[in-house]
Design a protein around this nucleic acid. Sequence first.
DNA 1: TTGTAGGCGTTATCAA
DNA 2: TTGATAACGCCTACAA
Lengths: 337, 337
Amino acid sequence: MERRSRVRMLDVARAAGVSHSTASRALNGHPKVSATAQAAVADAARELGYVRDLRAADLASSRATTIGLLIRAAERPFYGALAAQLQTETEGRDVDLLTASGGDDVPRQTRAVQTLLGHGVGGILIASGRASAQAVEYAASFVPTVTIGLGLVRPGVDAVHVAAESEIGLAEQVSRAGHTHVAVTASSNELAHALHARTANFLTSLVVSEVRTTIIASRTEDSRQLRDGLRAAIDAGATAVMAGEDMAAVRILEYLDEWGVRCPDEVSVTGFDGVGPYRSPLFGLTTVAQPVEHLAKEALDLMERRLRGDQTTIADIRLPGRLVHGRTLGQPPGART
Amino acid sequence: MERRSRVRMLDVARAAGVSHSTASRALNGHPKVSATAQAAVADAARELGYVRDLRAADLASSRATTIGLLIRAAERPFYGALAAQLQTETEGRDVDLLTASGGDDVPRQTRAVQTLLGHGVGGILIASGRASAQAVEYAASFVPTVTIGLGLVRPGVDAVHVAAESEIGLAEQVSRAGHTHVAVTASSNELAHALHARTANFLTSLVVSEVRTTIIASRTEDSRQLRDGLRAAIDAGATAVMAGEDMAAVRILEYLDEWGVRCPDEVSVTGFDGVGPYRSPLFGLTTVAQPVEHLAKEALDLMERRLRGDQTTIADIRLPGRLVHGRTLGQPPGART
DNA sequence: TTGTAGGCGTTATCAA
DNA sequence: TTGATAACGCCTACAA
């Protein structure tokens, strides 16, 4: 491919026989440009294949056409779907997304935020269930910041996430099905705010319903821990397991399958997220589908408002998820005739 | 959050009692800076929470610290995993990723490329199975371009994708299992180059093995078409279905399940991609796992080489996938005793 | 080793 | 309506 050495606005201006100022105005649709100049510039630009340098434009006008997205584990359906949706939503508006991957520790998160800032993003979206308060506040000290799906509300930082009612509602389904001893997974990662909040909501609801609970502690990296905890919980008499996310729920289903424990006849399982393949009827997972589209839309609306300088109170938007009735939640063995 | 009005390099320089040139050199780790100045600048920068404006830096040095990624449907496990891996790989190197979502038609793809170019990316990665030749060549006419997973090799454009042998190998597994009539899905979208190539490889291999083939035409958006085609193929006697991607394979499994057709006892099914949840033993999918990590690494290696000005021949790198033996491929009904 | 001056590609403020 | 001219924040000869 012959690689055209980048054509600048000045080149367009010359070709159109005007000054670069006029070219700039013409290309920006400025009102006070003669139709003649307007046309000449437009023609020249098309002819030369001109593409405006947004870095220079942003720099000169000290505004930003870019907003940063700090995302965790984009290979996971939930985050992947969120990123995709944000991308899509973003196309209609006049901003572009610069993405940095989260990193699961504070220094990396901070560095990612710095990278984003270095590129002059006008705002930062943090889509991560494990962003540290530190990184979030660091970002917020520079530009408007919105967290998505983080179960942690920081002063001065807008937040959008799934409503606690959806988590409570799922737990209610489990207790209503008749289970009197339920195991709940809990992350032992201190940054997993979203999971912690979820676990707490599950537990609260179960306790209110006078259901006995057992906690299965686990960390994403250690599957043995989950496996052993699950075994122990079942041996202790738990007839249902509420996982904090579909990924864990599926792993649990796999273990049960391996052990020959039937689901839901012997043990019921619920998940959370309900995105992509996890929604397949083949899994038949009883779960809550995160309102991914709404989350993305609300987050960007919030961001746009902030970028326009709207200084009203900090928002903490909670959107309802959708309960997905699958085959993995049934009555406890005792309740069967 | 108190929002510090952005601190500039000049501020750092002043605080350190040196000129901005010295500050610049110090911050860039330039060799000829006195230890005193070096330390003073570093201290001042830390103190003030300085973050370098990369746009300005790139502009001034007319280099690029950013490369663009044009990705299709990041909500899908394969592309999501690819994007995530590219992000991760990218962290070790000294570039950042600016992401734009593909768009499934030529004008949108071109616009996405322009957006990327506008931000001054030094190169463009196109991770899409349906990028148009036009968009690819447009990108390549400006900056080094590498396609990933696109089954289309354009002159002057580097490409990285899964080896045809992996696709052929999968088809061989099917014919070796004894199937003599196999249905293969084919996308009716003209831009679906990756799928077309895959279908062709499947068919070629099957024909060579003297297996009768039936084509199930479908487009992603139209599930009825897939359903009807599948029904017709089975009625015509096909005992195995090779889907172009896991997503379609799972949909096929769902239909079979719905119809009470047992898999693999009555009909075998294979997929492609083998990423994320699709890998679950619960699906038990016989498929080929794309070498996501290798794809990402090779693509970035290639890009780095180009950015360093390496003008050697265009690369067309093909990486082997890993055959995943699941439960969905078995012998045809007739072969059972 | 350091500072001065010019330039990267735009936008924005002036006069004209 | 237009065109100089000065920013924007940074890098980089060149000179000191």
